[in-house]
Design a binder for these strands. Structure first.
Lengths: 125, 125
DNA sequence: TTTATATTTAAGAAGTTGCTTAAATAAGAA
DNA sequence: TTCTTATTTAAGCAACTTCTTAAATATAAA
């Protein structure tokens, strides 16, 4: 931002602005971490994957590809993002890898699943 | 997806796959709508804006620019996205426009604010 | 070992996001 | 009206996302 003659309102409440700055500082990396997780669920495909894992307990990339109607590499790349942020984990059974939700971020994601069910009921009924 | 000889596992559970497809269909546009909202909060700047509006009740683009340390047009463009999805609303007072959270999506976003507070406490204490 | 199956990885293209700068709009004060 | 302040809008650009296709990896079966 090269704009030094920035707006700084005449009636700006300096105390409020400082208080806000401190609020952000006090909460340190929490914003980055949380927004990172929300960005995962902010993609429709990944939200569906999370919802399906909640419902079915575990699913493999192949089945997800079939269910979602998209290529296996595309699904695999979404799963990797979810795994990288500790949202899901995989267990191998022969050639197949079954993915499931990790407990770690479930408290955050759980309300979304209810939100989906509730919202579609309103539309459907 | 041009890949017709798709993976379709030998041991795939056809019933489970069909059940999943129906689950997605039954919930119609809910996934698109919810992921759209989550994508808003999935940006660190916008998450901070939402958090600040929750804390301060209302703030103008100019103050937000000052608090967040970014240009006014950049802030304004984030506010527009939030307004377009009915998450915030503005009221004019002279030349200043004060933005605040709308009740509409508050149930969804409220847990995030608690999450931020809790998470930063863990780190700080 | 060769072949088939399940998954991942990598390179590249197309689309989206989020900033910048400059110009436009809108209201208040001189 | 002209000037200042607050905000929005628009064009352009760099970075990021998400897909595609092809190749690599890993396990199991012939």
């Amino acid at each position: 931002m090269e704009n030094n003659q920035s707006c700084i309102r005449v009636f700006a409440d300096k105390d409020q602005i400082n208080h806000c700055r401190e609020l952000l500082q006090a909460n340190g990396s929490a914003f980055g971490q949380l927004s990172g997780l929300l960005a995962l669920a902010g993609n429709e495909v990944r939200l569906k994957i999370l919802f399906l894992l909640e419902e079915e307990n575990e699913l493999c990339p192949c089945d997800l590809s079939d269910i979602l109607g998209m290529s296996i590499p595309a699904v695999s790349q979404h799963l990797r993002k979810l795994k990288d942020k500790n949202v899901i984990e995989g267990r191998r059974e022969g050639q197949t890898i079954f993915y499931s939700l990790k407990q770690e971020q479930l408290t955050l994601f759980h309300p979304f699943f209810k939100h989906i069910i509730n919202n579609s009921n309103i539309v459907t009924v």
